[in-house]
């Protein structure tokens, strides 16, 4: 197990390093000088030069890369070109919207998908199965931002149960905050839940055909007992893979959904930063999101080993 965790950690570190180089290099080749952009067309040559050195833009790319990475490791993401405030602070504020949103959506989609997928698989070929699969087929096809717009139309504009957007801040209390995140989280979660339910069903259906399920039945277990005790854990292996992949889709989805609901999260931040050429913010937020994806996939790898003794004792 220790060996397994160690190799996974090593590959996590390599992924992070390579990802940071790719992000830095892409931002590096962007045409245009942020300092000149910030000061406008009429700026004096020497004022631009002064700003450049103030922003640290006159150092060599390699030196700046190491400064950027070194800063991130210590929690210092640098200073926003536009707002002249520490990026760490800007991200910190917004993270408290984006992260709960993604996590609530992930929890919600899992909570919906598991029972639905299990029900469909254990009644394979029945009317229940057909109806469930029909709904998930539809769910997979619905773009989450459009679904979000429809939710706004129905629950905010017509029924007035929720506000159509914006975020009151966590200072207004947990309930107010959660209420503002309800529609966004549901519109993120439902299409994802459809995908997950389909995966859960097909993984379980495959497991039901395994030889050891026949052994379990021959021991005298009922169909339900056999599914609960033997099939579910085996079916979790492919499902875990999809949950890992889904997290990255949820993060990306959250960025878009924040736009629908005017939530001041990382998504809004990154689009503002792009339009203002605030490159240090763009690269930091992208790096943070990639970091989250890589860490979640590491967690999924560890979860594999907990579920599957074959991986655990590989070493």
């Amino acid at each position: 197990m220790a060996h397994y965790v160690l190799t996974r950690l090593l590959s996590l570190a390599i992924s992070l390093i390579v990802a940071s180089i790719v992000i830095f290099a892409l931002i590096e080749i962007i045409p245009g000088d942020p300092a000149a952009f910030m000061l406008g067309i009429n700026a004096q040559e020497d004022t631009v030069a002064a700003l450049r050195s103030e922003l640290g833009l006159d150092a060599s790319p390699v030196a700046r890369y190491f400064e950027w990475v070194g800063g991130m490791v210590t929690g210092d993401f640098g200073t926003s070109y536009t707002y002249r405030t520490p990026v760490t602070e800007m991200i910190g504020e917004r993270l408290w919207i984006s992260l709960p949103l993604a996590l609530i959506a992930l929890a919600l989609s899992t909570l919906i998908a598991f029972p639905v997928g299990i029900l469909a698989a254990s009644r394979r070929g029945s009317m229940t199965d057909t109806v469930i699969m029909g709904f998930t087929q539809l769910g997979v096809a619905i773009p989450n931002f459009w679904f979000a717009m429809l939710m706004v139309l129905v629950f905010a504009i017509n029924l007035r149960w929720f506000s159509a957007g914006g975020f009151p801040g966590w200072d207004e209390g947990l309930v107010a905050g959660l209420k503002a995140l309800t529609l966004p989280a549901v519109s993120l979660a439902l299409p994802q839940a459809s995908i997950l339910a389909r995966v859960m069903r097909s993984a379980l259906v495959d497991t039901l055909d395994e030889d050891f399920m026949r052994t379990a039945r021959a021991k005298g277990l009922t169909r339900g007992q056999a599914i609960k005790r033997h099939a579910l854990r085996n079916a979790m292996i492919p499902v875990l893979t999809i949950i890992g992949l889904q997290f990255s889709f949820l993060l990306a989805g959250a960025i878009i959904i924040e736009n629908v609901f005017f939530l001041p999260g990382l998504g809004r931040l990154i689009f503002q930063a792009i339009s203002q050429r605030d490159l240090i913010v763009v690269e930091s937020v992208v790096m943070l999101l990639v970091f989250a994806v890589i860490v979640v996939n590491f967690a999924v790898d560890i979860a594999y080993a907990i579920v599957d003794p074959r991986l655990r004792r590989q070493a």
């Binding site: 992924s15 390579v18 990802a19 790719v22 992949l245 990255s248 889709f249 993060l251 990306a252 960025i255 878009i256 999101l289 990639v290 994806v293 890589i294 996939n297």
Partner: peptide, 8 residues
């Protein structure tokens, strides 16, 4: 590596 970057 590419999987760590969602298409968005």
């Amino acid at each position: 590596l590419v999987f760590a970057f969602p298409s968005l």
